[in-house]
């Protein structure tokens, strides 16, 4: 029930926000010299002449049966448009997140195990840098090294999954790395501080008194307890990665969701913007829901009897 309420509230907010944005899609499509009666006719055709309440109900009831409307600029159903972009954005986000986890967890654990030593200081310095470096700049650096000099992968564009899974993954690899660096840096710091926090807990001392070594204590006792704050950050990061890749998508000429929204906004293709934002809201709620389930799997205190 909370799920439905959240979505309904979000849809209303999105609709009102977009209504407030200046700019008439019909005027934008016809250019500045359009005759008033042509404009009126187009507005009627697009359904923009009806009052906002009616249009809101139309939009929401459409979505309920899977009809997201037709893009003003592309003249194709929004659902088609979005799903074509989603097959790029979703794998990209997943890859970036996996990379981020694969880098951050070992790095964070390593740093926590050697707190205050050179390795810890070094890792923390690198993550500081990783957060500070703008990811588009790093992306360009990656292109220069791996695409232009070494020619291991192409500099941009997406061949489509028809070209084969390997080709697809290769095309997404550099953008995923560019996205992952910042996320991994943040996550590594969270992993480290969460671990250091759990390492001061009484049960760690109990486990040490049982005869566990520092390393065994870290792996068997501290790690799982430290996962709770880490999961929270992971959830936020995934939501961000799905739509937050606009700049990276532009650097690599990827037909992703971020670019779709960006184009939608500049071209006043409001129906596309509305639908994509709605989809993102849905994704964020889903991710949070999954994070909650993961909490319960990790922590028996959160399970209901």
């Amino acid at each position: 029930m909370m799920f439905g309420l959240s979505l309904a509230a979000a849809s209303l907010v999105i609709f009102v926000m977009i209504e407030l944005v200046p700019g008439d899609p019909a005027a934008f499509m016809l250019g500045i010299n359009a005759a008033p009666d042509t404009l009126a006719a187009l507005r009627a055709e697009l359904g923009l002449d009806a009052n906002p309440a009616v249009r809101y109900v139309r939009w929401v009831s459409g979505m309920l049966i899977g009809d997201f409307g037709v893009s003003y600029t592309y003249q194709v159903p929004v659902a088609e448009l979005v799903s074509a972009r989603l097959v790029v954005s979703l794998p990209l986000a997943v890859m970036a997140l996996l990379l981020s986890i694969l880098i951050a967890i070992p790095a964070g654990m390593f740093a926590a195990a050697r707190r205050g030593q050179a390795a810890d200081v070094g890792i923390m310095g690198v993550t500081q840098l990783g957060i500070a470096i703008p990811n588009f700049w790093f992306a360009m650096l990656l292109v220069m090294v791996f695409a232009i000099h070494l020619r291991w992968v192409s500099a941009g564009g997406f061949p489509g999954w028809e070209a084969g899974v390997i080709e697809g993954v290769k095309a997404l690899l550099l953008p995923a790395v560019a996205l992952a660096v910042q996320q991994a840096s943040i996550l590594a710091r969270v992993v480290r501080s969460a671990l250091l926090d759990t390492l001061t807990q009484d049960y760690i001392r109990t486990a040490r008194a049982r005869g566990l070594s520092r390393r065994q204590v870290l792996v068997r006792h501290a790690f799982r307890n430290a996962m709770i704050p880490v999961l929270t950050i992971l959830g936020l990061q995934f939501s961000f990665l799905i739509a937050g890749a606009v700049i990276i998508e532009n650097v690599f000429f990827l037909p992703g969701l971020g670019r779709l929204v960006f184009q939608g906004i500049t071209q006043r293709d409001l129906i596309v913007v509305e639908s994509v934002v709605m989809l993102l809201v849905f994704a964020v709620i889903m991710v949070n829901f999954m994070v909650d389930i993961a909490y319960a799997i990790i922590d028996p205190r959160l399970r209901r009897r």
Binding site: Y203, R205, A207, A209, R210, G211, I298, P300
Partner: peptide, 19 residues
């Protein structure tokens, strides 16, 4: 530790791993 000598602590609420 644990084999030849064991230790128990004061805080029964926090001295065991909750997970």
């Amino acid at each position: 530790r644990g084999r030849r000598m064991g230790m128990i602590f004061q805080e029964p609420m926090t001295a065991l791993n909750p997970l």
